[in-house]
Design a protein around this nucleic acid. Structure first.
Length: 926
RNA sequence: GCGAGGGUUGCCGAGCCCGGUCAAAGGCGCUGGAUUUAGGGUCCAGUCUCGAAGGAGUUCGCCGGUUCGAAUCCGGCCCCUCGCACCA
């Protein structure tokens, strides 16, 4: 027998698989699955492994079931991340270098070339292909492409033409995080600090100040009626600036920000904050008020000036109180204007005093402010003299009034600060013009998507709700970028199509990817794609033969059957792709299903490359073997559940494969005559085949593995136990070997390829026929008999343990016929509680008296404890218990090493014998 | 805050949708035993509590309800994870 050597199996199979998984259209029914293609900016870890192995298992399963299976792969390289990475490497950023050199193990000479972003993606996409192949993924690599290929760009342009013509592409303005130093919008990954900050809309309330205006930013314009003063920071230098041709007094920072937000700003002169103290300002809605000094005023917050509402804002309240304690401004009184449940006349005072806050600098002040803000917004109502409306209504109304009549404008600002760019500069909010959007907010478009979702299979079913909510919630999506790699936006070639927006219908591109490579990109006009994908003829189409071949591929493969992706893509990619599909393709080419994955954990903690908490897939494959990695990942959780990689569990998985390997070798040449127990094993095998098949049809890899691996293994254990001492089984085991190897082939293909050869299988295991359960080989009666025996053995064991005597003999007494009658009557009774009464109406039973009622009660309990199918069988044809035990007598004597007697209860002498019930014989150990 | 998912016995994790088969699968860990076992392999047994007869008792985040009967259904509460956009 040859030894167990996963590495050798891998090398051998790889040789035989070359070009094996490159399907073309054929007469067979197709099965097309896709995964979200990777963005190759780093090495693969075991979490990626699962993402691609799950579809591979499914692909292999359907391939063995006779389908023509397409599993393609490509690389997504559009966008900005690699640009950032290459820049950081170019300037020798320590952290980045360490990540790539030490964790991803990029050789020094390769790393040196990483200042070019395309080199990075080239390097890692080659690595991806190498590692994916090492994992045994049955991918058609002929179709590999990247999203910056010129032909792909042509395809994207065609796609966008459709979107545009459908009216889904619109132009607008959009506030973004912006770094004035880099002169670019700032994405999450470019932030040093403040990634949680959100852009919020402030209303600038314009106070008249001599010939100028002082704008104060607020989220609560309705509180204008309660303003008692403005706050200015005396230590800050303010400026007088001409904003949109009107003089404003604002902080220096505010001047810069306003310039980014569609305002013309010309700074005229500086004004020290202290010079503004005690000046008077006015607003039509609150009259004339003074400007007071306060240290808490932050010049980097909006306009740098604050309107004070001491009755409703804790900061304002405390600042005013502190001044008044010094004997200043004692005539100013907070002006309450909102009634809110749970607070007194002056909510800010109430809250501050309740919390026992004494200082403006108390860290709880922000939380307190938030608390009052929320309470007033949710439950607050303005006093009748201010209109009596709920705050949530009044707020918008007042804002509108101010904008229309009192010169208010909107200013964008972050809700938390600071927000700092990687370059160290403060990030500001800029309004971008010429920003293009995909109009996902369009109700008609949404409805098309919702309709399509109804026709799609979603796995697991719980995600359907999440998809529905996402469609509901989606707003317009800014779909162009100024930096990054990608396809030029056709209506403004200075911009690029944003990476999520160029990855929505590429599953269709896979069908032609290998063929389109032979065509000059320059002739790929929209008409060409119109023909390939929609069958629309136009005059003078070039390369007609190639186009026809591509049209044929598309028609054969499309639509895809299932798309696999991680769960965090539901709120964007997975939903976007449906939007795009419904716009471009006819109904019969729309997606059919999606499978959504859970996340990966490493030793209980979230996997994260940036935190170094990853285990590289290539290392895992090298250390444990590809089959081990596959089987572990498939068996540890269902695809949609989170899984946890733990080395010690992986090691035991490897032992399991080894056990399987040797088990097959031990069984493959066995030649004994079949016995009764072979029929049992065969019958059970049919069940495992059925259940494994059903599980894989539902993408339950874990369940499938439980059935096909552990299920069969446990049956074999019982089987061996039941064999006579000298026997090692019958020749029937050979067919079990064949079925077992094929059942496991999708999971551990390398080992199975080797075993398939060893047991004389024809061709590749990867293309062998999937086992089919044979109804004729199922034998419920034998299974029931074995079940009875097994339960009795377990009972004997537990009694033996309890009584702790050395047994000299065991007597098994079977229940008499009349107890079987009772059992059957109760089992069939619709109401089991009334059945006893019915039974006791029978004369024969009544004669037995208490014995009969006891038996009836015990039967009722027993029936509730047995699985319903078994009860049904016992009550039906039943099982000849006497025959079962007589046949198993030598087995039982072998098991327990003492003589075993079998009697029927009526002829037994021991008192225990009376306790015998159907399917539960009395046991007497002496 | 909004949206989605989840809390099971030492751990991981089935089961809950379709209430009785559930003291609750499987794996891991631990304990004991067997084995020409190299102290790491394999096999067997045990692993909530009690029990010298296959049984009984208390468990499935917390509280309450429905039911002859609830880990499973309903209501409330607490806690955890993920997504919330211009980022792949």
């Amino acid at each position: 027998m040859s030894g167990f050597d996963l590495g050798a199996f891998e090398r051998k199979a790889q040789g035989r698989w070359t070009h094996a998984f490159e399907p073309d259209p054929s007469d067979k029914e197709k099965y097309y699955l896709t995964v979200a293609y990777p963005y190759p900016s780093g090495a693969m870890h075991v979490g990626h492994g699962r993402t691609y192995i799950v579809p591979d298992v499914i692909a292999r399963f359907w391939r063995m079931r006779g389908r023509q299976v397409l599993y393609p792969m490509a690389f997504h390289v559009t966008g900005a991340p690699v640009i950032g990475i290459s820049k950081r490497i170019a300037r020798n950023d320590e952290k980045t270098i360490r990540l790539y050199r030490d964790l991803y193990k990029v050789p020094q000479d390769v790393l040196a070339k990483f200042n070019d972003p395309l080199t990075i993606v080239k390097h890692f996409s080659d690595e991806y292909q190498r590692v994916m192949t090492a994992c045994g993924l049955s991918i058609d690599w002929r179709r590999r492409f990247t999203t910056v290929d010129p032909t792909y760009s042509k395809f994207i342009e065609w796609q966008w033409k459709h979107l545009y013509e459908a009216g889904h592409v619109i132009k607008g303005v959009h506030p973004v995080r912006y770094c004035t130093y880099d002169d670019n919008p700032v994405g999450d990954h470019d932030l040093l600090e403040g990634d949680k900050a959100e852009v919020v809309k402030f209303t600038l309330v314009m106070f008249r100040f001599g010939d100028a205006f002082i704008p104060t930013a607020t989220l609560r314009p309705e509180t204008i009626h309660g303003v008692t003063n403005l706050w200015v920071n005396p230590a800050v230098i303010y400026v007088r600036a001409c904003v949109d041709n009107k003089p404003w007094v604002i902080s220096r920072e505010a001047a810069e920000k306003l310039a980014l937000q569609d305002h013309s700003v010309v700074v005229e002169k500086e004004i020290p904050g202290k010079d503004l103290v005690d000046k008077r300002v006015s607003h039509p809605l609150c009259g004339e008020i003074p400007v007071l000094p306060a240290d808490f005023v932050d010049p980097d917050m909006a306009s740098g000036m604050v309107m004070s509402v001491p009755a409703h804002a804790p900061f304002d309240y405390i600042a005013l109180r502190d001044l008044q304690r010094q004997g200043k401004y004692t005539t100013i009184r907070p002006i309450p204007l909102i009634k809110v449940e749970g607070y007194g006349e002056v909510p800010a005072q109430d809250a501050v005093e309740r919390a026992g806050i004494t200082s403006q600098l108390d860290t709880r002040m922000d939380a307190l402010t938030q608390e009052i803000y929320s309470a007033e917004f949710a439950k607050g109502k303005l006093f009748d003299r201010y209109g009596g409306k709920p705050v949530r209504v009044a707020r918008d109304e007042v804002a509108e009034l101010m904008t229309d009549q009192h010169g208010s404008v909107i200013m964008y600002e972050f809700d938390t600060r600071p927000v700092v760019c990687r370059c160290g500069n403060r990030v500001k909010v800029k309004i971008l013009h010429d920003q293009w959007f995909l109009k996902y907010s369009d109700p008609a478009w949404k409805e098309q998507v919702s309709d399509q979702l109804l026709d799609m299979a979603l796995v697991p079913p719980e995600v359907r709700l999440e998809f529905d909510r996402t469609v509901d919630w989606l707003k317009d999506w800014a779909c162009t970028r100024r930096v990054g790699l990608g396809t030029r936006f056709p209506w403004d070639t200075t911009q690029l199509i944003e990476p999520l927006s160029d990855s929505t219908i590429y599953m269709a591109y896979y069908t032609i990817a290998h063929r389109i490579k032979t065509i000059d990109p320059n002739i790929l006009s929209p008409e060409v794609f119109e023909y390939i994908f929609l069958g629309k003829e136009s005059p003078n189409l070039p390369e007609r033969e190639k186009l026809d071949a591509m049209r044929k591929e598309f028609l054969y493969w499309y639509p895809y059957d299932f798309r696999f992706s991680a769960k965090d893509l539901i709120s964007n990619h997975l939903t976007f792709q449906i939007f795009h599909h419904v716009t471009i393709f006819p109904k019969d080419k729309l997606p059919k299903g999606m499978v959504v994955f859970g996340m990966g954990l490493l030793n209980g903690a979230k996997m994260s490359s940036s935190k170094g908490n990853v285990f590289l897939l290539e290392d895992a494959v090298g250390e444990f073997g590809a089959d081990t990695v596959r089987m572990f990942l498939m068996g540890s959780a269902e695809p949609w559940q989170d899984f946890d990689w733990r080395n010690e569990l992986v090691i035991s998985t490897k032992k399991q494969i080894e056990r399987f390997y040797y088990a097959i070798h031990e069984m493959k040449d066995v030649s004994g005559e079949p016995k009764e127990i072979d029929a049992w094993l065969t019958s059970r095998l049919q069940d495992h085949i059925e259940k494994t098949t059903a599980a894989l049809e539902n993408f339950q890899t874990r369940q499938a593995l439980q059935e096909s691996f552990f299920g069969i293994e446990n049956d074999l254990k019982w089987y061996r136990r039941r064999l006579p001492k000298e026997s090692n089984g019958s020749r029937m085991l050979r067919s079990l070997c064949s079925a077992w190897v094929r059942l496991l082939a999708p999971f551990i293909p390398f080992t199975c390829e080797k075993l398939w050869e060893d047991i004389g299988g024809q061709g590749l295991a990867s293309f062998a026929d999937w086992p089919v359960a044979d109804e004729k080989l199922k034998n419920r009666r034998i299974e029931l008999a074995e079940e009875l025996l097994l339960r009795t053995v377990e009972d004997i064991e537990s009694i033996k343990k309890l009584i702790q005597i050395t047994p000299k003999s065991i007597t098994i007494s079977l229940a008499p016929g009349w107890k079987h009658d009772i059992f059957t009557t109760i089992a069939r009774a619709p109401d089991k509680n009334l059945a006893i009464r019915e039974i006791m109406k029978d004369d024969a039973m009544r004669k037995r008296g208490k014995e009969a009622t006891d038996a009836a009660k015990q039967c009722t309990t027993l029936i509730h404890r047995l699985p319903p199918q078994i009860v049904e069988l016992i009550a039906g044809d039943g099982v000849n218990e006497l025959a079962v035990f007589e046949q198993a007598q030598s087995f039982l004597e072998k098991e327990f090493g003492v003589p075993v007697h079998i009697t029927d209860a009526e002829s037994a002498t021991h008192a225990k014998a009376a306790t015998a019930l159907p399917f539960k014989p009395a046991i007497v150990i002496e």
